[in-house]
Amino acid sequence: MSTTAPHRSLTTALALDAVLVIVFAAIGRSSHEEGLTVLGVAETAGPFLIGLALGWTIARAASLDPLGRTGGPVVWVATVAGGMVVRQLVGEGTAFSFIVVASIVLGVFLLGSRFAAGLLARRAAARG
């Protein structure tokens, strides 16, 4: 295995996390009939993408695997909390119900994708 494989894997995982945050934003905009323009989705996703970057940075700085059992929750919580802080700073809403929904959906997306990847990796290893 080359030395770039782990880096490529983390880069791919970070990109997948970003896509999941963008999907979250698109679903939210669609459910509130706000329109699915590129600019609109970017505006909604932006604060959470900043939170996601913060979460990955915190996990890596703490020597936690951002894809692991301890680092994954750090990424999730920082994505939600950071996103809400940025939304407050730019004058966007952070109603309690939105915080709850964002926490649940992003938790399912970010932690669920890690669980699924781990399950697939264990099955592949078991097959030999």
Rank of each mutant, 00 (worst) to 15 (best):
A126S: 04
M1I: 10
S31T: 07
V19T: 15
G68T: 03
F24L: 12
V80M: 03
D65H: 09
H7C: 09
T44L: 03
V108R: 06
L54E: 05
L119T: 15
A45G: 08
T12D: 14
T57M: 10
V21D: 01
I99V: 15
T70A: 11
S2L: 10
L20N: 12
V41H: 02
I22E: 10
F109S: 08
V105W: 14
L20S: 11
G35F: 05
G72L: 10
G83R: 03
S31W: 06
A62E: 12
S97C: 11
T70S: 12
L89G: 09
A59P: 10
V86C: 01
H32N: 08
D65Q: 04
S97E: 15
S31M: 10
T79V: 10
V86M: 09
V38R: 07
S2T: 14
V108K: 05
T4A: 14
G68C: 08
F109E: 04
G68P: 00
S9Y: 09
V105K: 12
I27V: 12
R123W: 08
I22H: 09
S30V: 02
A45D: 03
P66H: 08
I99C: 08
I27H: 01
I22R: 07
V77I: 15
V90T: 11
A102Y: 09
F96T: 09
I104G: 13
A18R: 01
D65M: 02
A18F: 04
S9C: 05
I27R: 00
A15E: 01
W76E: 12
V108S: 06
V21W: 04
P66L: 11
E33Y: 00
V101P: 01
A45C: 13
R8F: 13
E33T: 00
A15R: 01
F98C: 07
I22S: 05
V77Q: 03
A18W: 01
V74R: 00
G71Y: 06
G46N: 03
G82P: 00
S2M: 14
L10R: 08
E33H: 04
E92K: 11
G40N: 03
D65F: 00
A59N: 02
D17K: 05
A81N: 02
G112S: 07
R122L: 05
G107R: 00
T79D: 05
G35D: 08
F109L: 15
F96H: 04
L52I: 04
E43Q: 14
F48D: 01
G28I: 06
G55M: 02
G91P: 11
S2K: 14
G46E: 01
T11L: 15
V90H: 12
G46W: 11
S103M: 15
A95K: 00
V21L: 10
S31I: 07
A124N: 15
G128F: 09
F96Q: 03
T4G: 04
T79E: 03
L36A: 07
E34M: 15
